[in-house]
């Protein structure tokens, strides 16, 4: 059964991309068809580790209104219905603010004179290619653009999914994260055992629970002060998929853009047990849900 796994974290810089890229690589080495989607469109870095040959580049667009002043009867309805201040109705013209527009289509629907059409506006781009046998796709938000969810949506609908699809999500807990993880079968929350790491993990857990997603935690850079983190996971009945030790060699390999499982073979076994734990959890969830639908 194909599975779609999101790698996410409340706090940035916990090792999300490291885990995602290594998982994609190792699943692919097992002979499975893997897709890697870099949904961290504000700061995508998966390409640094997977080194894909990017062969296809396409713009990603969102729709914005275009006003035909010849038809406009200056009723002001479009300006009034827009919740995002993207249209200003003046006595003799309508001014549009494309970067404020959420492409909801309200103005178009409300216009009694059919004076509004929609035109595409570029907000970023999508790059696709192969990294070995991995299908690789990433989104890149244009500088100065405010809204990444439409780009993430476009990226996810465009790329071909594999037997295993790895979604590298952006950090945080708001709209771009939700857009990235909402349709995934499983979420891996990567954290580090520091007060900041724990605080942000608590927020991330609330998010995945609000979305009713199945998830587990990877404690990265473990070793200094793990107990509060582990206590939290026990208390909340959260599965700890793996603890990866804090190791300066990992930081160094990362800084050079190397995959950890290649640069440090002693880490490979840890990743394999992480993968096994994850697959067991996904399988468990699938069995449970099929029980629910066929009682």
């Amino acid at each position: 059964m194909p599975m779609k796994i999101a790698i996410a974290s409340g706090k940035g810089g916990t090792g999300k991309t490291t885990i995602a890229a290594n998982l994609a690589h190792l699943f692919s080495q097992q002979g499975r068809k893997v897709t890697y989607l870099d949904c961290d469109v504000e700061a995508p870095n998966g390409h640094i580790f997977l080194k894909p040959q990017l062969t296809e580049h396409s713009p990603a667009t969102t729709l914005i209104p275009q006003i035909d002043l010849g038809r406009c009867i200056h009723c002001g309805k479009c300006g009034r219905i827009c919740q995002f201040n993207a249209l200003l109705c003046l006595p003799e013209k309508v001014v549009t603010f494309p970067e404020m527009c959420h492409a909801c289509g309200a103005c178009l629907l409300v216009c009694p004179a059919e004076a509004i059409t929609e035109i595409p506006r570029e907000i970023g781009s999508i790059d696709q290619g192969m990294a070995g046998s991995i299908i690789f796709a990433r989104g890149l938000l244009n500088i100065g653009e405010v809204m990444s969810p439409p780009l993430i949506r476009a990226l996810k609908s465009k790329a071909e999914e594999g037997e295993v699809t790895i979604v590298d999500a952006p950090p945080g807990t708001s709209c771009p994260v939700i857009e990235s993880i909402r349709d995934c079968d499983y979420v891996v929350l990567v954290t580090e055992p520091t007060p900041f790491g724990l605080n942000d993990l608590e927020l991330a857990v609330e998010v995945v629970r609000a979305l009713d997603l199945s998830f587990g935690v990877v404690v990265n850079r473990a070793g200094l002060n793990d107990q509060p983190m582990l206590d939290f996971c026990t208390e909340q009945n959260i599965l700890v998929l793996a603890q990866l030790p804090d190791d300066r060699r990992v930081a160094e390999a990362y800084s050079r853009g190397q995959l950890i499982c290649e640069a440090l073979p002693d880490f490979k076994a840890r990743f394999f047990s992480l993968m096994a734990a994850m697959e067991t959890a996904i399988l468990g969830r699938q069995i449970k849900s099929s029980e629910r639908s066929n009682p």
Binding site: F84, N85, L88, P91
Partner: peptide, 13 residues
């Protein structure tokens, strides 16, 4: 938060 300038401009107009 966003669009305050546009809203205020509407009032001036």
């Amino acid at each position: 938060a966003r669009g305050a300038g546009i809203q205020a401009a509407q009032k001036v107009v």
